[in-house]
Design a protein around this nucleic acid. Structure first.
Lengths: 253, 253
DNA sequence: CGCGTAATTGAAGATCTTCAATAAGGGTGG
DNA sequence: CCACCCTTATTGAAGATCTTCAATTACGCG
């Protein structure tokens, strides 16, 4: 079978300049420009707490968040959870995760709508398709970079630094820079993302609030009056606002 | 320019069945089967503690460990270090790491010999080269899986579990299953890999030694009498011996 | 207004780090 | 071959950090 592809070079018609995904209408979808066969597409409306299993069809199943907030996570036998990434509308997730080590999920942190693109029936064609490999390559690459940054953070920042970095990162990655930042997930979720527990997250946030580094208008909404002051408190650079998208849509090199 | 490629399909001539790398002679090199232009190849003999900067030419510079033990790491402004991965002979590293966040290095944990393949001058050709993208895709994929496993470990295992997992992992990944396991790096290096400090690593290892889960014949050599007993102490599965290579050489799906 | 969920906070306990002292190896020169 | 030195590893004790547990407060929703 063939995919309709906008443009005709490997980097043409995909990524930043392409129209919104023809099927899910998602402006950030890594597959906008592609026209996958309709039978590959399926929508999931998940309520908060529900999840999809991500291991089957590794590398050829994709999920694009249309609305709400989702997360990829690993679950250990004994119920421990580690959130690997937080996904907002426009983010596309590729199912290539650690296979046997533990259970991998795509979870709904809020009620959310997910567009699933399951291309595994067309594996033979796609694995020799240059455009496809390029898109997947970018997805993998962006995800690897984020995961490495996350790993460094977890290994070598203390709780105060981790929460500070998290708040700054969420501020940098938000879609509307003119609006206050909203946290669409619980303290528990933040804790599982940062390798802490919910009480510690809450306690550290209170300290940050009292230090006036961040102004909370509610437990889930805040503004950062002085991002440079935040940056000075951290031994690592805070991602720039553009990075979130550029990592997927930008040139490979 | 063209690369000589053994075989003619996208999955033919590369990966598991291919001959050793024609240039570096490395049986594990992800580029065995490829015949890169000689001017792309450069050897580095690093003494323990020396390092290469990994950020330039992201995705098109590669390093293959020929001999010794190396590690990829991030360094923060204030000198904190996080080791991202430990690389042994046969491992190939792709330079696609977090770009601006902090300094990225390939470090020699022991004296070691590295084969550098810098393909960035041929970017235009390679980014449309199916075989090349397939190899890089596998490298990225394998690295992402390892990094995700590492991240989960760091976030949700305590010091005792992390060290136990580390010892089991090193045992599973060693090249000679009939020989005792050797640790070619210092306690400090292990600590920076596990997000602990050297004293804690040493203390935990002593506890593990006393529990007889592991038999140390020296600070850097040990055997695992009962791997199942080790597995029962951990909430995650220990990678199987074959996994280390299969992740790169095996089929994509 | 009342209820249920989530967030906050304090106090006690567990874990991990820091600091300092000691022990173990490896290499070098006598 | 041995003595010495230097680096690394080990270990104990004190301190910092993070978690656990319990109590309280805040918030959203009927």
């Amino acid at each position: 079978m063939n995919f309709s592809i906008v443009g005709n070079g490997p980097f043409v018609g995909l990524g930043q300049g392409a129209p919104d995904c023809a099927l899910c209408g998602n402006a950030g979808c890594a597959f906008r420009g592609f026209l996958p066969p309709p039978e590959a597409i399926r929508f999931h409306d998940l309520e908060r707490g529900q999840h999809l299993d991500c291991r089957e069809g590794a590398c050829l199943r994709f999920w694009s968040v249309i609305d709400g907030c989702a997360a990829t996570s690993t679950w250990f036998r004994d119920g421990r959870r580690q959130i690997l990434s937080i996904e907002r509308p426009g983010d596309t997730i590729c199912g290539s995760m650690a296979r046997e080590n533990s259970e991998q999920r795509l979870e709904a942190l809020t009620d959310c709508r997910i567009c699933e693109i399951d291309l595994s029936p067309w594996a033979d064609d796609l694995l020799t398709n240059l455009e496809f490999l390029t898109v997947v390559f970018r997805l993998l690459h962006a995800r690897l970079e984020k995961t490495i940054a996350h790993l460094s953070t977890m290994g070598r920042l203390d709780s105060h630094e981790r929460v500070t970095y998290f708040l700054a990162d969420m501020a940098a990655r938000r879609s509307r820079p003119d609006q206050p930042v909203t946290l669409p997930m619980s303290r528990e979720d933040i804790a599982d993302y940062l390798g802490l527990n919910a009480d510690s997250v809450s306690r550290v946030m209170s300290r940050i609030r009292k230090s006036k580094l961040v102004r909370f208008t509610s437990p889930t909404e805040y503004t950062v009056p002085d991002m440079d002051a935040v940056a000075r408190r951290l031994p690592v650079a805070i991602p720039k606002p553009a990075d979130a998208f550029a990592a997927v849509g930008g040139p490979v090199q």
